[in-house]
Design a binder for these strands. Structure first.
Lengths: 343, 343
DNA sequence: TCCCTCGTCCAAAACGTTTTGTATGCGTTG
DNA sequence: CAACGCATACAAAACGTTTTGGACGAGGGA
């Protein structure tokens, strides 16, 4: 068991190895009669024959292996989604994903890429755990797709969330509820997500005819503590906001805490919207946090399908080099009509 | 580039393929003179030669690939830790991990195992996202290790958290702070973790000479809402607990909410301990939640090292079949001396 | 001087497939 | 009836390594 090879099948079926190969192959059916084909298949099944992908990979110059190198799967709860999306897309088309994590150690990442290449992966996905620019190791001789990242030259296909659109989705929810004074707790780090979401914040205001007020936007650490600090700052304003849009759900968590301490009810006295759809937080909070989900699963999927298109030569040249994915709103209970707007 | 094989190196170095192989190998150094060895290595490096692992795998009957099949990497924030531990242990010893997720679809899992086997993985780790019994597909002809799981017959090496010890660690913290009436919000599901932690809860009480009171333990959904429900129930008791030990951090989150609503300060009026060390929750809460960390990373590591020991035949027979891993306490700010105990 | 041993190198087989090129025999066609 | 085409089967080469079993000389011991 386990050690049965194609020649064992050939022997048992009393045909040549060639015939077995053809009989088992979908493509070469023409080269073998239906009867022998059936016969061979039966024998193969009864012996429990299972082809050795190493050997066929060697012969075909195709391993049916994909490499996925990410910078920190452990620390982000969304990594699983990305990886799952990637894995699903690969498995559906007959590929397997080999995963490595560099832990943001770029020298190690380069070594890992070499190792993956030694294993003859047919393609590589380079993933980052939040939207950022990535340095691509040189000398990669297989197709590469960037996941939640992009390269300086724009040389590689890449998929990232549409940050500005995500912010607009969040803001739309607030503006349509009647809010005019909307605070924004941004991420203080200078990353694409911070820029993109600020842009979405501003364009939403502009579109709604609301003047931008710099006092309403504050830049904080991307953590619960940042949310607390931001909320304190915004709510201490002489003319405080009736709603707060947070860079992400963890900050929103902090806003909830501050609101509770100040005796402000959510959503009655203060509406809140986050970004991430960080289930445990968004769903655990009371009331549930309305938020915009980042499409991690879809990004993983897109990256691998794109990669396989490239590998199989079916890549559509119409495809944009950088794909922006939509971020859907998840409504829970943290948005209501502002007090001042009456009811 | 990329397409340079061992024969290219041989040609360029003006030696035979055999010599190149020996020169590059660590083991066969004796079969080539130091000079040629150096020469060959230089030439190989200058050509950028990188051995084809598929080919050597075919020849050696060793792929240096490990399969990791898990039931749901996407939904658990701890999956990343496990995977990372597994991956690190593998990489350090020259192996790569191929990851597949079955999404709790056991038929799919079986197919995935077959696929992994076709790729000639040298070993398999079957992982579950929470401690449970696992069904092992038949006909696997490579070593298998179970991760956060065990099989009915105890036929495979397996690593799981020491649930009872984890509970005792949490309880010790509470008891040493002076608490005598300690509530326990358990998981209502009948899983090993629930049994183990209950056992730890009871044995801790016994050891401290505290009588067990059935009214103080309640079984709830393993979610924030379950924590809320449990806290309501326990705090409504005529003689309410001064501390609550929760099955996990998400429930503790619910306890915080209920405490706040009832005007109970944590830890002044109520001490709380969880299990999981779910960073975003435990660290985001105010005050920070004292909790017991589950050793996901270490379990991943242990599983793979054990697997490699088995593969390389270096397995120590002294090793227990089922390894219980310790769970360290993470102290934050949710435990204090009870009011009644004075100061 | 002869025989061995040792150091250094290489040819060839093997790992398990896939695919090309060819052989065989039968039925069909002119 | 000769010639040809087609359906079916197979042998052998190839993919890129590793390793076994020599070959070949040089040096040492008897």
């Amino acid at each position: 068991m386990g050690k049965v090879g194609i020649r064992d099948v050939a022997k048992a079926a009393e045909v040549s190895v060639t015939t077995v190969s053809h009989a088992l192959s979908e493509a070469h059916q023409a080269r073998v009669s239906p009867e022998t084909r059936e016969h061979v298949r039966k024998v193969a099944a009864s012996l429990g024959y299972s082809p050795n992908r190493l050997a066929s990979g060697l012969r075909n110059q195709r391993s049916y292996l994909l490499g996925l190198v990410s910078d920190e799967i452990a620390s982000s709860p969304f990594a699983g989604e990305m990886i799952l999306g990637a894995q699903d897309a690969a498995y559906e088309r007959g590929w397997l994903v080999m995963l490595v994590d560099s832990g943001r150690n770029w020298a190690l990442e380069e070594k890992q890429v070499r190792t993956l290449l030694q294993h003859q992966v047919d393609g590589l996905v380079l993933a980052r755990m939040y939207h950022q620019r990535a340095e691509i190791p040189a000398g990669i001789n297989v197709p590469v797709v960037l996941l939640d990242a992009f390269d300086a030259e724009g040389a590689f296909p890449s998929v990232v969330p549409d940050e500005a659109a995500a912010a607009r989705t969040a803001m739309k929810e607030l503006i349509e509820a009647g809010h005019r004074r909307i605070g924004f707790i941004n991420n203080r780090d200078e990353i694409p997500a911070a820029f993109g979401r600020l842009e979405g914040y501003r364009s939403s205001l502009a579109e709604a005819g609301i003047e931008y007020d710099g006092a309403l936007v504050t830049r904080q650490r991307p953590a619960v503590s940042g949310g607390r600090a931001g909320a304190e700052e915004l709510l201490a304003l002489p003319d405080p906001p009736t709603a707060i849009f947070c860079f992400h759900d963890q900050q929103a968590f902090g806003v909830y805490e501050v609101a509770a301490r100040r005796g402000l009810g959510i959503p009655g006295d203060l509406s809140v919207v986050g970004i991430d759809n960080f289930e445990i937080v968004a769903d655990g909070l009371w009331p549930g946090l309305t938020t915009v989900a980042l499409p991690h699963y879809d990004m993983g999927r897109w990256a691998v399908s794109r990669l396989l298109d490239e590998i199989e030569g079916t890549a559509d040249d119409g495809e944009p080099r950088q794909k922006l994915l939509d971020c859907p709103l998840v409504r829970r209970g943290s948005v209501a009509r502002p007090r001042s707007a009456g009811m």
